[in-house]
């Protein structure tokens, strides 16, 4: 039964998307260094749907400091800055439920499609939104 499927598989293209490079580079780190220098390009990941919940974006101007996002956040990601009455988001702990986005009365928070968030330091500037 399964042989027919297997034969058709042998002729069809792989189901997976090649990422980050189309062909296996000799060294992944060397390839990533080349990407940073602009000599090579990352093969793009599969596009995400419009409702995708990725890294949070914060509009500082719209925020009124009501702290509702802090009340609903399950992972206690959001830190309140009392002096300026604004918030700071530690994305490294975020669970990407986007409940804060739903709760925000002024639409200051939004979920972006960005999901390549791997980092060696949880406090790196890439992972802190303010």
């Amino acid at each position: 039964m399964i042989f027919k499927t297997l034969l058709s598989q042998a002729l069809s293209r792989p189901a997976t998307n090649k990422f980050p490079a189309k062909y296996m580079p000799r060294s992944i780190l060397g390839f990533l260094a080349k990407v940073q220098e602009g000599k090579a390009r990352i093969h793009p990941p599969v596009p995400v749907p419009p409702k995708f919940r990725g890294k949070l974006a914060y509009d500082r101007e719209k925020c009124i400091g009501c702290q509702l996002c802090i009340r609903v956040c399950p992972a206690k990601v959001i830190e309140f800055l009392p002096e300026v009455k604004k918030i700071r988001i530690h994305v490294a702990r975020c669970t990407f439920c986007a409940q804060c986005v739903d709760a925000c009365p002024t639409n200051a928070l939004s979920a972006t499609p960005e999901f390549l968030l791997a980092d060696t330091d949880r406090n790196s500037p890439n992972l802190i939104v303010e």
Binding site: I2, L6, A15, P49, K51, R53, F96, C97, A98, A111
Partner: peptide, 28 residues
């Protein structure tokens, strides 16, 4: 072989869940 075959076809429903809810798992 059957494992890979089944899990390949499973991708489709995960894509639909992502489309409808925003995440492949933990749909919230």
């Amino acid at each position: 072989t059957l494992l890979h075959l089944t899990w390949r076809v499973r991708e489709k429903v995960l894509d639909i869940l992502e489309e409808l809810t925003g995440n492949r798992i933990n749909y919230a």
